[in-house]
């Protein structure tokens, strides 16, 4: 028999969009691609021009050789990692208990996780300085103590991303049944959390962490006014003092963001999340 029995919804699903709609789709795509790629191309081109008359990676060499670059970069990486760790430590139990035992708290928690969008970074740092730079709550006395404060603030700023990521993850695995199943088999809650919930949340946790990393790594505003020598303020200085290095820096920074987002895309299969708040 020549007749196939493959299900026809699959086969007839796509009614091809009309030719004119495809033309407009392509036009929009190409124009916007141009808008988004030209600045990157121009920056990359500049980053290759540091040496007279030849294209090369001189600007990158100079950037990496700059004695301030590596300390700023590593400080930012450590800050980001610490903020992610803190954020996970706080958000995972919160999301878990809000899902399982304290559903009444959900609206409150969701409201609070919206705050980083409501309070602009520059306003937040303004308030932080007014609150913590004099007794009785002196927190910014030394560089190191300010740094701890910065990390805590970053962790708080990551709450919206982290909470949504973990919450979606918990919804996807039906955490209630898993927990009840584990309980009925005699597990206590530590075992449940570490042996049952965490392994099933790997993707959600990782994507929340990477998103936080991408946002925190080059953060400028808060670090600037708290006088921290991290990557953001370093990059801002660089644009004022150097000609070619900023282009190399922009490309490096773009690549880091791209990598974080690429990994999220890979592990979540395209369910990456919207962000906001610059």
């Amino acid at each position: 028999m020549t007749v196939s029995s493959n299900s026809m919804p699959g086969a007839s699903e796509k009614k091809a969009p009309s030719r004119s709609s495809r033309f407009w789709a392509w036009l929009i795509f190409i124009l916007s691609a141009a808008y988004f790629l030209v600045p990157l191309g121009a920056t990359f081109y500049w980053s290759l021009k540091a040496e007279k008359d030849i294209l090369g990676f001189e600007a990158y060499k100079r950037l990496f050789a700059d004695s301030n670059f590596l300390p700023a970069f590593s400080q930012s990486v450590v800050n980001a990692a610490a903020a992610i760790f803190l954020s996970l430590l706080i958000i995972v139990p919160t999301a878990y208990w809000v899902t399982l035992r304290l559903p009444k708290l959900r609206p409150v928690v969701e409201f609070i996780t919206l705050l980083p969008f409501v309070i602009p970074a520059v306003v937040l740092v303004f308030g932080l300085i007014r609150l913590y730079s004099r007794p009785p709550l002196l927190w910014t006395a030394t560089y190191e103590s300010s740094r701890v404060l910065l990390i805590c603030v970053y962790a708080a700023l990551s709450f919206p991303y982290m909470f949504r990521s973990v919450d979606n993850g918990l919804r996807a695995i039906d955490v209630r049944s898993l927990t009840e199943a584990a309980q009925s088999l005699g597990a206590n809650w530590v075992t449940i959390l570490f042996r049952v919930i965490f392994p099933n949340l790997r993707v959600a946790l990782l994507s929340g962490a990477l998103l936080t990393f991408a946002i925190v790594i080059g953060e400028l505003t808060i670090a600037l006014y708290m006088a921290q020598h991290t990557l953001g303020p370093y990059m801002a200085d660089l644009t004022r003092s150097k000609v070619y290095e900023p282009s190399a820096m922009a490309i490096v920074s773009f690549s880091v963001t791209w990598m974080a987002m690429g990994v999220i895309q890979l592990i979540t299969g395209g369910q990456g999340q919207a962000t906001g708040g610059h």
Partner: peptide, 8 residues
Amino acid sequence: AGVPLASA
């Protein structure tokens, strides 16, 4: 956003 975007 931020510095790299401005530079670009």
